[in-house]
């Protein structure tokens, strides 16, 4: 049976977990860019990195392959179950689609360049690290360092869109230099630290210190912020602001910062929920 996505033919690869390994599997080689031409036999021959070894993928998954693909764009890979111990799902992927019907482990969508990754559970830390393009959707929560840069690298996430339906952990989007992150739940400390460009929207509440050491870019918080840094200067109360081409309705408190680094970043707080800062 040929699966179909719009008018594009789709090769559907379904991996159904049959065995759990507490040593994480690494899936950086199993991205559409690499596997679009693989047959079922190719998958069955494939050995997946586990710790310092490689073991047959078939030890861990039942594998179904339906249809043909001429290019990565035509691949739809489904991990049909928990992947809470599978790292680098969609790592460096350039095209195609990956769906995880469960949790994803560390580095999901790290250095992603294109295509889409959907996680119908929670994602561990480093989800969307250094993302350059494409789209990641996490239906649950993400832990620390979502959309972050690599340690020491001052040019972080530069493109694409990361949407988190749940909550985000600490240090979201460290050194972000482009792209878009939307957290629909709450967010922990220091979102957008060292940010130089790009856009972050947080619909829930934030504990403290968004935008620490930020140089530029924009953060919009629709929930309540507990603690604001002294590095942010009140600019104005604005109504129905437009931020980076996006329209928001209602009153917002607009700050500029972090002045500690001569920052020109924009921090918008929903005025209704953040009166305590005025």
């Amino acid at each position: 049976m040929q699966a179909n996505r719009g008018d594009v033919n789709v090769k559907q690869i379904t991996l159904t977990p049959i065995k759990f390994s507490s040593v994480a599997l690494e899936f950086d080689e199993l991205i559409p860019d690499e596997i679009y031409s693989w047959s079922k036999e190719d998958f069955e021959k494939y050995e997946v990195p586990v710790g310092n070894s490689r073991f047959p993928l078939t030890d861990y998954y039942d594998i179904e392959v339906e249809g043909e693909a001429q290019s990565p764009e035509e691949v739809k890979m489904i991990i049909d179950g928990d992947a809470g111990r599978v790292k680098y799902i969609g790592g460096k992927m350039g095209a195609g689609e990956i769906i995880v019907n469960g949790d994803a482990d560390l580095q999901a969508g790290a250095e992603m360049e294109g295509g889409s990754l959907t996680i119908n559970g929670n994602a561990e830390s480093y989800c969307g690290r250094e993302m350059r393009g494409g789209e990641i959707t996490v239906m649950g929560n993400v832990r620390e360092y979502a959309g972050t840069s690599y340690i020491g690298e001052w040019r972080g996430m530069s493109g694409g869109k990361l949407t988190i339906h749940g909550n985000a952990g600490k240090q979201l989007a460290d050194a972000m230099s482009g792209g878009e992150i939307h957290v629909m739940g709450n967010c922990d400390i220091l979102a957008g630290i060292h940010m130089t460009k790009g856009f972050i929207q947080i619909d829930g509440d934030v504990t403290r210190w968004p935008g620490g050491q930020m140089k530029n870019g924009a953060i919009v918080i629709n929930g309540r912020l507990e603690r604001l840094l002294e590095g942010f200067e009140l600019d104005a109360i604005v109504t129905d602001p437009e931020v980076e081409g996006r329209q928001f309705t209602g009153k917002y408190i607009k700050y500029i910062g972090d002045i500690g680094v001569n920052g020109k970043g924009t921090l918008l707080l929903n005025a209704e929920k953040n009166r305590h800062h005025l």
């Binding site: 220091l190 403290r208 210190w209 620490g212 840094l229 002294e230 590095g231 200067e233 002045i259 500690g260």
Partner: peptide, 18 residues
């Protein structure tokens, strides 16, 4: 973090609000 951030703001000539 908030303490160091405030010193840096003072160094940049900001009058502390809190």
């Amino acid at each position: 973090y908030g303490f160091c951030n405030a010193i840096r703001a003072v160094l940049k000539g900001k009058e502390l609000k809190q």
